[in-house]
């Protein structure tokens, strides 16, 4: 019996790391309360006036995440006043990615002038609930009654290197549709970036 329990536990552990399911548009967004770089806890519930959130899983050293830092600050500046502030979560555990330590997250906020919370996800529980795959990985959330609903997932735009003036701005387009009460034309795109660091499957 003991062996069976042990076996079941091992099996569960295996499944937990092997199968990451990314939540899709239409799904209810899991709530969270995570520690910001100033030590204070941040939760979507702290924003009674928000209509939704631009939730982004992003990290310190990934070149894709770095390429989008300025655009995240711009998104926050443009949309927090319209009711859609940015909340960033670092999905990478320090044990697997030294450059993603809590101290280095504090440095990042100063250096990149983040105007939004940058949260530590100890144990990767929120990262795994959303099924974040890469950094940066966007989940656009909309408030619906007392719940948050995912309305868009994927990339910020289709031009990481920021050289095409005619780039498609997926997040901005999605918010524009929400504001007009229209259906979002592109509700999901491929999330492009560095793979979220997860413990290896043994």
């Amino acid at each position: 019996m003991k062996a069976l329990v042990l076996f079941t536990m091992m099996f569960c552990g295996l499944v937990a790391t092997a199968q990451i399911t990314t939540l899709e548009p239409g799904a209810t967004a899991p709530g969270f309360s995570l520690k910001n770089i100033d030590g204070k806890m941040v939760s979507p519930e702290n924003y009674p006036d928000a209509k939704g959130f631009i939730l982004v899983f992003t990290a310190n050293t990934c070149p894709y995440a770095i390429a989008y830092e300025t655009r995240l600050v711009e998104l926050d500046q443009k949309f927090s006043s319209q009711g859609y502030p940015v909340i960033a979560i670092n999905p990478n555990p320090e044990s697997l990615s030294k450059g993603d330590s809590y101290e280095k997250m504090q440095d990042k906020v100063n250096e990149a002038s983040f105007s939004f919370p940058y949260l530590l996800d100890e144990g990767q529980s929120i990262t795994n609930l959303y099924g974040a795959r890469v950094t940066p990985h966007i989940f656009l959330l909309q408030k619906e009654d007392n719940n948050l609903k995912i309305v868009y997932t994927g990339a910020i735009d289709n031009d990481t290197e920021d050289i095409n003036p005619d780039k498609i701005k997926y997040v901005e387009n999605a918010i524009a549709s929400l504001e007009k009460g229209e259906a979002i034309e592109t509700a999901s795109t491929k999330s492009i970036g560095c793979t979220v660091k997860r413990p290896a499957i043994e």
Partner: peptide, 18 residues
């Protein structure tokens, strides 16, 4: 290539881009 959304599918439809 510039548009990842496009080139990833062109290389292989099953590729997540990782």
């Amino acid at each position: 290539e510039q548009d990842q959304q496009e080139y990833i599918d062109k290389i292989n439809k099953e590729w997540s881009g990782a």
